[in-house]
Amino acid sequence: MKAVSLSLFAAAAFFTSVGAGTAAPDVVVSIKPVHSLVASIMKGVGEPKLIVEGAASPHTFSLKPSDAAAIEKADVIFWVGPGFEAFLEKPLEALASSAAVIELEDAPGLEKLPFREGGAFEAHDHEHEGEEAHEHAEAGHADHDSHHHEDFDTHLWLDPMNAKAMAAEIEKTLVEADPANAALYQANAAALLKRIDDLDAELKTALQPVKDRPFIVFHDAYQYFEHRYGVSVAGSITVSPETMPGAERVKQIHKKVSELGATCVFAEPQFEPKLVRVVTEGTSARSGTLDPEAATLKEGPDLYFELMRGLAGSMKNCLSQGT
């Protein structure tokens, strides 16, 4: 009996040491949704370092000295790519010479949707004239330069199938960087993929009753979510979150809300909510909040699921009112 006890103790000690016996690689991740996927796959091995923390937005982020130090020390760095985190492009070139830098926008199996031009999603609107035409062109050009090096929408994680493609690339990279912990990365990734599939089925069911009701968003961040779940985003208040719309643009969106009978207009936590009040004033549209980059959520393995459920819940709650 004593021998059996010793054997069980030895086995437990062995499996405990699988994740702890070798030093975990230093992993740095740009934004919260991607960090959540990486943290899930690294569970039991180590914790990745997040750059865009708290309520900060990648659209307006400035790198801190501690972030630069983490990049310089990193073994692996995950980011969406220069089309989304423009602030990281030059620091990675200068500081990450010894790291494996993975652009997840290049992950095999991703579905990429074309970048949409204009606050109301028209590819070309020849009715814009004068000052508003100039404002619209300038805002669209700035947004394309700073966040769309390629002609596709970079909010890729808002389709769970893209999150699965990213997770597969994260797993592959970590296994190559740290083969001693390969079995744990693989087991964690398999569990994550199953969890994402369950989430996808849950969101389809939740959104089915409201998917045909039109609504307006603060900026055009939700195309992948729309495409996956068939919800009816009718336009955005601003072309780019860095460029606040002028009076003419706000007037046009107000008119669009009235004409479409849009049931809800959604703000975002990091940006000016009073614009939503202006756009909905005098209409029957309600207001709500969507958080596509998880500004209000605590980072960690569960964040991706909280983010996606939060989007679906906010949409369903606002769009269901008055029915």
Rank of each mutant, 00 (worst) to 15 (best):
G19V: 02
G109F: 01
K298R: 09
S314N: 15
D178T: 04
E268L: 07
H144Q: 14
D200F: 07
R309S: 09
E132M: 14
F9N: 11
P241T: 06
A295N: 09
S30K: 05
D197A: 08
R309K: 14
G322R: 06
V250H: 04
E111K: 15
P33C: 08
S287P: 08
L6K: 00
T154F: 05
D67A: 03
E135W: 10
A189W: 03
T22C: 03
L37N: 03
D151S: 14
D145M: 14
H155E: 10
N317R: 14
K298V: 00
Q186F: 03
I237V: 10
V34Y: 02
S284W: 10
L174I: 10
G300V: 00
A183E: 14
A69Y: 07
R249M: 08
D220W: 01
H254K: 14
C318Y: 01
F225H: 04
L184A: 10
L290H: 00
D145I: 13
S5H: 09
E259S: 13
K316H: 07
E89T: 15
S30Y: 00
G235Y: 02
S5P: 01
A133Y: 07
A267T: 12
K112M: 08
S36P: 01
D198H: 10
E85W: 04
E111H: 11
A206W: 06
L37A: 00
L303S: 06
S62N: 15
R286N: 08
F152S: 04
H141Y: 13
E105D: 13
R277E: 15
R116L: 10
E138H: 12
V233I: 12
R228A: 07
G313C: 02
C318W: 04
A221L: 04
A191S: 13
D67P: 02
L156D: 06
V18M: 06
K64I: 00
E72C: 04
F87G: 08
K256P: 07
T16W: 15
G21N: 07
L156G: 01
L95S: 06
K316M: 02
L311N: 11
G230L: 11
F218E: 03
F152A: 05
W79V: 07
S17I: 05
H147R: 13
K172H: 09
